[in-house]
Design a protein around this nucleic acid. Structure first.
Lengths: 336, 336
DNA sequence: TATTCGTCTGGCAGCGCTGTCCAAAATCAG
DNA sequence: CTGATTTTGGACAGCGCTGCCAGACGAATA
């Protein structure tokens, strides 16, 4: 391994003390323009990169944060990572990826261990880790900065980026109602994901706003998986009369329901409308393409990193817009 | 931030020198059982975690490696990460995720900068970064350990984990031929992904092994995207006679072709068979479920990390098994 | 018994930076 | 022109560990 240059070598060549080089690297003041330029030249020429480990050890900050997640969806994780990574990179921070098991007994100690080991400057939490009270408390007690992405509980606590799940669910429900549907089923996600309860609430509110009574029998529990969507749909298909529309709490379950409909030879959207939530890759890959809500996953993560590291926003909670994507799985309700 | 304990505090409480604590932490020998136990007790009790930064700075190794990728597929990236992360974690290494742009002029300098900054002990490369000659050369020159996952070029160079793309493509082609198909189209991926050329070679070999002449007109170039699969399929649909089967170089393109078939009202698999490659999430989410090759993505990454860090395998190149997954998009060729 | 060896332990330098304090030079005020 | 202030740059300690060396001790060998 060809030995990398150090700050001292840079300083020697530039003809200044190594402390001055440090000042230039950290963009501190009290360095003349002329000196700064000279140092920067040498840095570029030597291709010098300060040792992250040394900065961490010597300084108060590590310029490292971690993204904690426990989500089985590649789509979701990929985009959360991409958004957070982008903002961290722009701000000169390194982002550590930390998949976790939210059910684990050791969740809190494990996170704290990571924080200590890596001297973390902060933490980005994504659902469902946003809802773990012990974790939140531990971080608060430690006074460790953190942001939550799309928290379901205690939405006004600390830093958070969110979207309006209730309003989005109302929109998609209204879309279905406007198409003439009255018997609309809702496929909810796991309890641990509070977003799913919000979506249920929006569904219910919109129904009632249109004078359609809420029927608990039309709400089927799933776990956000493709498989559970299919299972739930088959339960509904056995009912008489069959609901004319299904609103699934996420795209995976909607795709599962859609596949089940194909299997049962139920025409979509002619005989059955299906709507999802997320606008994941799946939404465009299935046939017909799925009507869904575009959730700004990547942007939520970008904004979260920004909120924690740059603190650009005035309010501790930022809400981003969603968008109803009407595609081809929803259509007019069939004539009874 | 409550100040974390240091190795010195541990040593004071345990009544040994801090050097001895260091020995225990690093599992070095020349520590009596008794002493070791005592130190470990104190470590557990204080919840002590050694500072990664300090170990990196003081020692020869950083226990950090990076995973480099430039792949738009959430599915692929997620599983590559998961596999590599798992093995790294088991071996006490930290894994940094580094998305890159393989087209970038600064690719090599950027990677080298990361290596320096983070004192990386090694690098895991995934396609298409496995095929960048400048990168490989730079790493070789630096004598930096690295593994390539599924390299297409120079497969016998250095450490690598692979699967047999040629054989897999032959299998799936044979499956199609066995079903009576003769006019089989192949949707190839982008040039940068050499795997796609291997799959084409396998397709061609198997065709010729069965006495079916290879027809270049049946090979359509795509870019591994859903969209390009649809576009390619539409080109084929305009042909007379239409091919009876399509073998797509990956699942995304297969899904695109499938959607195009639905759109053109071509029954799958009755009038057209479609096969993919990867066995990604999509393969089971589309309708009908896709016949494809299961690519052991996660295992490839796991083995790659193992190869580089533990060096368990005897050979520098490890090949893992694929599996033909016959599902519902392939069926007997229609009677002419 | 004298000598070598292996096992266990501690001392100390130093990894490459940042934080703090201090000195010299440049600028300003009176 | 002197003294006070600001700007600029250097000296030095020390962050929390690991690497290397040396010393103490008991066991094995000559």
């Amino acid at each position: 391994m060809s030995s990398r240059p150090t700050i001292k070598e840079v300083s020697k060549i530039a003809g200044v003390s190594f402390k001055t080089v440090s000042r230039v690297l950290n963009n501190e003041k009290h360095v003349s323009e002329e000196t700064r330029r000279r140092v920067e030249e040498v840095v570029a020429q030597l291709n010098f990169r300060p040792s992250h480990a040394a900065r961490t050890l010597a300084g108060r900050r590590s310029f490292q944060v971690a993204l904690l997640y426990d989500n089985p969806s590649p789509y979701y994780v990929f985009h959360i990572q991409a958004g957070a990574l982008e903002r961290c990179h722009e701000l000169g921070y390194r982002l550590l990826m930390q998949p976790l098991e939210s059910g684990s007994r050791d969740l809190v100690p494990d996170v704290l261990a990571l924080v200590d080991e890596a001297h973390l400057d902060g933490l980005i939490l994504s659902p469902p880790l946003t809802e773990m009270p012990e974790l939140i408390e531990a971080l608060d007690k430690r006074k460790l900065p953190y942001v939550r992405i799309a928290p379901g509980l205690r939405k006004d606590h600390g830093l958070a980026t969110t979207m309006d799940d209730v309003a989005a669910a109302r929109e998609i429900t209204r879309h279905l109602i406007d198409l003439g549907h009255r018997a609309i089923a809702f496929l909810r996600g796991p309890e641990s994901h509070v977003s799913s309860a919000d979506r249920l609430a929006g569904y219910r509110q919109e129904l009632e706003a249109h004078g359609i009574p809420f029927d608990p029998a039309l709400v089927i529990a799933g776990d956000y998986s493709f498989h559970s969507g299919g299972a739930a749909a088959r339960v509904l298909f056995a009912r008489e009369p069959r609901p004319t529309a299904i609103f699934a709490g996420n795209d995976d379950m909607a795709a599962g329901a859609l596949a089940a409909a194909h299997e049962a030879d139920i025409a979509v959207p002619e005989a059955l409308s299906i709507a999802g939530f997320d606008d994941s890759d799946l939404a465009r890959a299935v046939w017909p393409p799925l009507t869904t809500i575009r959730q700004p996953v990547r942007e939520l993560a970008y904004a979260a990193a920004d909120l924690m590291l740059a603190g650009t926003a005035i309010t501790p909670q930022v809400m981003l817009d969603h968008e109803l994507k009407v595609r081809a799985t929803t259509g007019p309700a069939p004539k009874a």
